[in-house]
Deep mutational scan, measured.
Amino acid sequence: MRVFPVYAPKLIVKHARIFLTGVIWVKDLGRLEFEKGRFLLPRKSLPKVKQAILELNELIEAQN
């Protein structure tokens, strides 16, 4: 598990694309899981977490 002390979308996306499957922890967002290079949306999450995951997945799609 990698810990990101700040929310840096480009760096987080780079990590997810390299490792494809895993878990990261982002300060103020908490634990985020990714599989096959995409972030998974938890069943229950705060609106800011949901927005961050959608933003990260959009960045991943834009890079493909």
Rank of each mutant, 00 (worst) to 15 (best):
M1F: 02
M1D: 15
V3Y: 15
V3F: 15
V3K: 14
F4D: 01
F4G: 01
P5D: 15
P5S: 06
V6I: 11
V6A: 04
Y7E: 01
Y7P: 01
A8Q: 08
P9F: 02
P9H: 01
P9A: 07
P9T: 03
K10F: 10
L11Y: 06
L11P: 07
L11Q: 10
L11D: 13
I12D: 02
I12V: 04
I12K: 01
V13G: 05
V13L: 04
K14C: 14
K14Q: 13
H15P: 01
A16V: 12
A16Q: 02
R17A: 12
R17G: 13
I18S: 08
F19S: 10
F19N: 11
L20P: 04
L20D: 10
L20G: 10
L20A: 12
T21Q: 13
T21I: 08
G22H: 02
G22R: 01
V23P: 03
I24M: 07
I24C: 08
W25C: 15
W25I: 07
W25P: 00
W25Q: 07
V26H: 01
V26I: 09
V26C: 05
K27L: 12
K27Y: 15
D28F: 11
D28K: 15
L29H: 03
L29W: 04
L29F: 07
L29Q: 00
G30K: 01
G30Y: 03
G30F: 03
R31Q: 11
R31T: 05
E33N: 14
F34H: 03
F34A: 00
F34L: 05
F34R: 01
K36T: 15
K36M: 09
K36G: 11
G37M: 08
R38K: 09
F39H: 15
F39Y: 04
F39P: 03
F39L: 03
L40C: 10
L41P: 13
P42G: 07
P42Y: 08
R43E: 08
R43W: 05
K44Y: 10
K44W: 08
S45F: 07
S45V: 13
S45C: 12
S45D: 06
L46S: 14
P47C: 09
V49M: 13
V49Y: 05
V49I: 15
K50L: 06
Q51N: 09
A52P: 00
A52L: 04
I53L: 06
E55W: 04
E55Y: 09
L56G: 01
L56E: 15
N57I: 03
N57G: 02
E58Q: 12
E58V: 11
L59Y: 07
L59S: 04
I60K: 02
I60W: 11
E61T: 09
A62T: 10
A62P: 04
A62K: 08
A62V: 12
